[in-house]
């Protein structure tokens, strides 16, 4: 039983990160049909902004986190939208998806060439303390990760449902043409989605880097994991991304412990195929209209 709890909690902590990154995926998809293959690198990079803020500007850790998030919002939110997404928005999903693939290579190689190939230590958010929980040892850090991830998601939901801007964003996602007629500044709403995505990614970056270490290749698996989480949960639903993320983290751990370690990466994929075949809109997703 203790083992079960152990695996569950560890899985939830990892899954919380996947969820944070997956939410951004769904936001971009809903508002602009962007499939961002550089999403993993969007999590890898802000940690380097934060390290830079500490070493160059001499900021304390929390100050550096704030600066890192702001720079990410600007670079990975606004600039990304303006320079890469905008020119390609009306040319279909694929050219943009490929451009983000190139962007992912660019970010990885640039960090490796101009910063370092070596993994850089990153200060932890909390002291390395373990808490005993139903017989399982749980690190405080994992609990904080889960708490912040869930907190961020709840805040986002509240924002989307209970503020005027949030509802305008939803309207934009559902039908940009009608939204425009209703006088909603659609462009600004889409931009906002990109900024939120960048902020969530930067937040995830601050949460995972103490465990992952700051390294140029961090995004490789994270991006794919978040992608799978988004699909399993429902590509067009923020709530779905959370479920997908948490499920993926937990399933991965249980698969490694109880099924096959060599095929641990396969189990989430099988789950993915099953979900797509029997519930293509995702566990919590809504059915999408087909274009005819």
């Amino acid at each position: 039983m203790a083992d079960f709890i152990q695996l569950l909690v560890a899985g939830l902590a990892t899954g919380g990160i996947y969820a944070l990154v997956a939410i951004g995926f769904t936001l971009l998809w809903q508002t602009s049909q962007t499939i961002n293959f550089a999403q993993g690198e969007f999590v890898m990079l802000p940690a380097f902004f934060m390290l830079g803020a500490m070493s160059v500007l001499g900021l304390p850790f929390w100050g550096a986190v704030v600066v890192g998030i702001l720079v990410a919002a600007l670079v990975l939110g606004v600039l990304f939208k303006r320079l890469v997404v905008d020119p390609m928005l009306h040319h279909g999903v694929l050219p943009l998806a490929i451009a983000t693939m190139a962007l992912s290579l660019f970010l990885k190689e640039a960090v490796k060439d101009f910063y370092s190939a070596e993994a850089q230590p990153f200060p932890p958010l909390a002291a390395d303390v373990n808490v005993s929980f139903l017989g399982a040892a749980v690190s405080l850090q994992s609990l904080i990760v889960v708490a912040i991830a869930i907190g961020a998601v709840v805040a986002l939901q509240l924002f989307l449902n209970n503020t005027q801007t949030g509802r305008r964003m939803q309207a934009t996602a559902q039908n940009p043409t009608v939204a425009r007629i209703l006088g909603i500044p659609v462009e600004r709403m889409i931009l906002l989605a990109f900024v939120i995505n960048a902020v969530l990614a930067a937040l995830a970056s601050a949460l995972v880097t103490p465990i992952y270490l700051a390294k140029f290749s961090n995004g490789e698996y994270l991006g794919i994991a978040a992608f799978i989480a988004a699909i399993v949960g429902g590509f067009n639903q923020v709530r779905g991304a959370i479920l997908g993320g948490l499920l993926l983290g937990v399933v991965d751990n249980f698969a490694a412990a109880y099924l096959s370690a060599q095929y641990r990466a396969a189990i989430p994929l099988v789950l993915l195929i099953v979900v797509i075949l029997f519930r293509p809109q995702g566990l919590l997703g809504r059915v999408e209209e087909r274009t005819v």
Binding site: L7, A10, N253, A256, A257, A261, R264
Partner: peptide, 14 residues
Amino acid sequence: TESGQTDFAADVVK
């Protein structure tokens, strides 16, 4: 285990 793996909970349990 996988190269680049971050979560070793399952491996330690086993």
